[in-house]
Design a protein around this nucleic acid. Sequence first.
DNA 1: GGTGAAAGACATCCCAC
DNA 2: GTGGGATGTCTTTCACC
Lengths: 153, 153
Amino acid sequence: MPHEIDKIDRAILRILQTDITLSVDDISAAVNLSRNACWRRIKAMEQLGVIKGRVALVDPASVGLPLTAMVLIKTNAHDANWLKQFQTTLQSFPEIVGAYRMTGDLDYVLRVRVADVPAYDAFYKRLTSRISLSDISASFVMEEMKETTAVPL
Amino acid sequence: MPHEIDKIDRAILRILQTDITLSVDDISAAVNLSRNACWRRIKAMEQLGVIKGRVALVDPASVGLPLTAMVLIKTNAHDANWLKQFQTTLQSFPEIVGAYRMTGDLDYVLRVRVADVPAYDAFYKRLTSRISLSDISASFVMEEMKETTAVPL
DNA sequence: GGTGAAAGACATCCCAC
DNA sequence: GTGGGATGTCTTTCACC
């Protein structure tokens, strides 16, 4: 079970999820804690899975992937077999950076990173050849107005 | 203009965007490069903005924010004034972790991190009191099947 | 929770090739 | 681009209040 996360833990997380470049010294100073206590809290949160990992954020445009597509999917195949294949398919496509099962009208939403519209089309063909999806519609992101990995703490 | 990103740069990025815990020694070994050359490439990519930052990923459920809402917005106010206020509103709401202007039917999509449905409702009321939005519909994420910050390289 | 201190690992930078 | 090496900073782990 998740450990109790108190005010200080939240303050630490707020810093770490913005910039992990800072030293433990800097962080402990910012949250008014000793270097040691601060370090212990960070380690504990890593062990508990509150901190899931430390990653570098890559600018998609810089590596030739400026386009994001939101793919809305409806399906009528809801059996266990189909679901299993859908899940493995999701994992095998690196261009799928997000996949969500939704409430309401739409069944699934995918976030897809591609170079351009032709690249999306190629992705679309590969995807639909792998798994049956009764109704797909894509919408492209014209402008990324906000995008953060930081959770509101 | 972005520098040329070659195979080796991509290999480095593939590692860094997954786990930044590894030392430069480990990375250079993985991509068959000397520690020195590898370090220089990383620094260069940071300076060029290919690497946008280094962050810790926080598990939302562990901090009491297990629910994600996708908010689909249509508007008929498209003037510059409205847009400006919309943008500042987006930035001032930390629970909005993503905001996208879209092609097609929907005008905007928001990704919103909240504790539960009542918390979403409170957010909804605060949002609509701040800015006029002619048509909002929310859909909740039942299951996060895939979610990664790693770009397909 | 708070010292302080010690070990070693690591990033950083320089230079010669 | 490679390799070696100097330097200092940081992490990590102590023992102890």
